[in-house]
Amino acid sequence: MIDDLITALGAEFVQLSLTPIVIGVLAAVACALPGNFLLLRRQALIGDAISHVVLPGIVGAFLVTGTITAVPMMLGAGVAAIIAVVMIEVVKRLGRVEPGAAMGLVFTTLFAAGVLFLEITDTSSVHIDVQHALLGNLESLIWFDADGWGSVLDPAALATLPPQLPRLAIVLVGIGLFILLFWKELKISTFDAAFAGAIGIRTRLLSFALVVVTAIAAVAAFDAVGSIIVIAMFVCPPASARLMTNQLGRQVGWSALFASISAILGYVFAGYGPGWFGSPYAVSAAGMIATISGVILILTCLFGPQRKRTGQRAEA
């Protein structure tokens, strides 16, 4: 039994599974942290909207630069977001439709444009195609130069880590710092925006910053879980966490834990699960991560200590 475990967690594990799992955890937690505030502000669909808009930006950045690197991807996503905002205004004014309809129209159109770009351009030189854009590419983020756990301490091997790993680590630290440093402001303005404005909190700037942080998380997680599955990462862990506690700080902690569990179990089940049932194939890791996060949500709905709350909803 122990021998089996050592074999399972041996050199092959470090080379093939360690980095995808770590990247999956980093991506899931980076999305779950801002997701808590989006959820409590009833803006969970902003994560959805952003993940849609981000795709044409990333593809556009690839078309311009010919590479998939962090800075052009972020810039491309930013440009796409600005275009989306302008388009929403134009549709709203010229089409005389309500904002929700204008957003729905623009986001799906931009997303479709991103998919179309991907189909008609030659992206064979890099790991970007429609399937990866939608579902991520976690399984391919392996660590070629690793030959066992010793590589974790070997600078030469560490230098060959998939670049997504340090990138996501930096993003996660940045998001964590943002939430930690502006904890009071985020908490107060999420609970009571009018009061927050009256005591001098820059509520609009903070809302904007939260959207930017969400976009950064979505772009950084793009490689790992793609632009569709990422929505589950924004929503499911915080929603499950809310059912575990009645304190915001603990909720954020639970959401990080649930995100990590989803990423680890999701990857393991996707890679090894089908084998347990005699199937030689693996299933999509991102899909399985989202599924696990959904299962956790179901479990917390059934057994979470705060699943029955008597709180009054805002009337306005």
Binding site: K187, F191, F195, Q247, L248, G311, R313, A316
Partner: peptide
């Protein structure tokens, strides 16, 4: 200045004591 908004303007389901 202290401002007290309408009670119904916030979501009392917010996770706070």
């Amino acid at each position: 200045v202290a401002y007290v908004p309408q009670r119904a303007s916030v979501d009392w389901d917010f996770p706070a004591r």
